[in-house]
């Protein structure tokens, strides 16, 4: 991570290094399971667990792994972790496990996990890799929550969250009257549309920042030019 990236705050790192809307990693599960807030948070926590643990394990074994076979070795590590996390979810949060279904198993081929393993964990120490896994997992979870908030709110008008252990409702508020909801947001079409809007928003923020930086650079150059011209003018008048 370069120093300029370190200077940015937590939220701007979430936007700039957002794995989902910025780098387009792990789109499958983002589109598929964000119909409710419960699913989004459950999936997010599962990915955080797998990503942090896989980053830790891979940063430990990377120096011992021959380069040409590193992919199958990483795949075994990740698949083992996903199996463990899946078994734990099946035991403690059975309802959530059955709604998320194959998408828990498909964490194995989620590009974020293998991508971070190759790009970061294989060349950094344990502490840095764990931090990176946690940060990436968190920004993935935030993307899921953003998607599910929009889709659940516009699609059903109700925001609710229940304890995944025993299915007790923790809160449930109706923010939009039933006759004004847009059910299309709970369907596949809504998933694609919400994703498109959020991805465009992220890219608009980035474009805007790039433009601001360019404008500031231009203004500085203009100022310098004007100052130089001013310095020339009095000299001319004196002459």
């Amino acid at each position: 991570m370069s120093t300029t990236e370190k200077k940015r705050g937590f939220w701007s790192e979430m936007i700039y290094n957002n794995p989902v809307f910025g780098l387009y990693l792990g789109i499958c599960s983002t589109l598929a399971i964000t119909t409710t807030l419960n699913n989004a948070i459950g999936m997010g926590v599962a990915v955080i667990a797998v990503l942090t643990l896989s980053n830790i394990v891979i940063s430990l074994i990377a120096p011992l792994t021959p380069d040409e076979i590193h992919i199958p070795v990483y795949i075994v590590v990740i698949a083992t972790l996903v199996t463990v996390v899946g078994m734990l979810m099946q035991a403690y949060t059975p309802e959530l496990y059955s709604t998320l279904g194959t998408f828990i198993d498909l964490i194995v081929v989620n590009c974020i996990i293998l991508g971070r393993a190759e790009a970061y964990a294989s060349s950094h120490n344990v502490a840095e890799s764990a931090r990176d896994g946690l940060m990436m997992g968190l920004s993935y979870t935030f993307s899921l929550i953003a998607m599910s908030l929009i889709r659940q709110l516009l699609g059903t008008g109700v925001l609710e969250f229940s304890n995944p252990m025993n299915n007790q409702l923790i809160f449930s508020v109706r923010l939009i009257p039933e006759s004004f909801v847009i059910p299309v947001f709970t369907t596949q079409t809504g998933a694609f549309l919400t994703f498109a809007i959020l991805a465009a928003a992220i890219s608009a923020i980035k474009n805007n920042d790039a433009k601001k930086a360019a404008d500031a650079a231009k203004a500085r150059a203009d100022k310098e030019k004007a100052a130089a011209a001013k310095a020339v003018k009095p000299a001319k008048e004196a002459a």
Partner: peptide
């Protein structure tokens, strides 16, 4: 539009295709 170039507009196309396939 500038912000929609590349993948975002492609997702809008995918959304319309999803309507057709439904």
């Amino acid at each position: 539009p500038e912000a929609w170039k590349g993948n975002p507009i492609a997702f809008v196309v995918a959304a319309i295709m999803a309507i057709a396939f439904s």
